[in-house]
């Protein structure tokens, strides 16, 4: 069994805005073990979200390597990266990022729809629908299945985003400020949910947050500063 589910090695990422070059990540090293609930903190603009996007294969680093299951993802083709992202990685964003035209159930099923070809979808639709409804039930959203995002509260939208992230049973869940747009109570419930997922389903979670209290809910906390990772003090 691999010791790490995902590992970053000497990651460098810069952004150029006009004449200014921003060195966001400067040779960052990070490894996450299976079943771990890791929090990454840092001030705004420190590169937390950038790190999460790189780990989730949504962005490409300037140099360095990322290993998923000890496999170098930079060697993968674009299609392989898309497939890996679809099947092994789930995302939860600060602003939920739900498709407004789809219902809660349809948003939840979206990654599964992407996974399946037209024919396999026809064969597995009923099963996946049942699975999506089960997840929504676990997240207390069963009665909202036919609602659209605009008809939901912030907490419900974020739970829908979590349901969507879980539908393909990903090995890694990446959460970008999952409580950043919610009030304290709702945010706490979302963190409870993530904790439960981790403790009961052994779900590996990497969460970034600027809030130390939120980060404290994780097993391990790392702090991102000057483009490098440090242990939280």
């Amino acid at each position: 069994m691999n010791n790490t589910i995902i590992r970053a090695e000497n990651l460098v990422k810069t952004y150029t805005t006009g004449p200014e070059v921003l060195r966001i990540l400067r040779g960052l090293e990070l490894s996450v073990r299976p079943g771990e609930f890791l929090a990454v903190t840092g001030v705004s603009g420190s590169g937390k979200s950038t790190l999460l996007h790189l780990l989730g294969l949504l962005d490409e680093c300037d140099s360095g390597r990322i290993y998923f299951d000890e496999q170098d993802v930079s060697a993968l083709s674009r299609a392989q990266r898309d497939r890996l992202r679809n099947r092994q990685i789930g995302f939860v964003f600060q602003f939920y990022h739900l498709l407004p035209e789809l219902t809660v159930l349809e948003n939840t099923m979206l990654p599964a729809m992407v996974t399946n070809s037209t024919f396999s979808w026809l064969g597995s639709r009923a099963k996946l629908r049942k699975q999506a409804l089960e997840i929504l039930n676990q997240l207390s959203l069963a009665d909202r299945a036919k609602h659209r995002p605009a008809q939901l509260s912030g907490g419900e939208q974020q739970r829908t985003a979590i349901a969507r992230a879980l539908i393909n049973k990903p090995r890694l869940l990446l959460a970008d400020e999952p409580t950043g747009n919610l009030d304290l109570d709702t945010g706490a419930r979302i963190l409870d949910l993530l904790e439960t997922l981790n403790s009961q389903h052994n779900q590996t979670i990497v969460m970034v947050s600027h809030d130390p209290d939120t980060a404290n809910r994780a097993h391990r906390c790392l702090h991102l500063e000057q483009g490098q990772i440090h242990n939280c003090s």
Partner: peptide
């Protein structure tokens, strides 16, 4: 554009 980001974040390819 945000939808495009969401679709790609759940594994939708550029061609898709």
């Amino acid at each position: 554009i945000p939808d495009i980001g969401i679709i790609k974040s759940v594994g939708g390819s550029s061609a898709a």
